[in-house]
C-alpha cells in the first residue's frame, strides 16, 4: 500500500503529516470557535426570550 519513497521518505512523509496536521488544527479551531459562539448565542437568545 505504502509507495516506496526511496531516500526521501522522511522528508516527504514529514511534509504530508505536518501540513495535514496544520490543516486539521485550522479546521478544528474554526469548528471549535463556531461551536462556542453558537452555544453562547443560544444562551443569550434564551435569556432574551424569557424577558
Amino acid at each position: 500500500m505504502m509507495p516506496d519513497l526511496g531516500r526521501y521518505a522522511l522528508e516527504v512523509s514529514a511534509a504530508y503529516v505536518g501540513s495535514l496536521a496544520m490543516l486539521a488544527a485550522l479546521v478544528g479551531w474554526v469548528w471549535w470557535r463556531g461551536l462556542r459562539t453558537r452555544r453562547a448565542l443560544e444562551a443569550v437568545e434564551m435569556r432574551a426570550k424569557r424577558q
Partner: peptide, 19 residues
C-alpha cells in the same frame, strides 16, 4: 464557517448590548 461565526458573534454583542 468563519463568517457565520463572526455574524453570530456580532448578533450576540448586539443582544447583550440591548439587554
Amino acid at each position: 464557517a468563519g463568517t457565520r461565526t463572526e455574524i453570530r458573534a456580532r448578533r450576540m454583542k448586539a443582544l447583550i448590548a440591548r439587554e
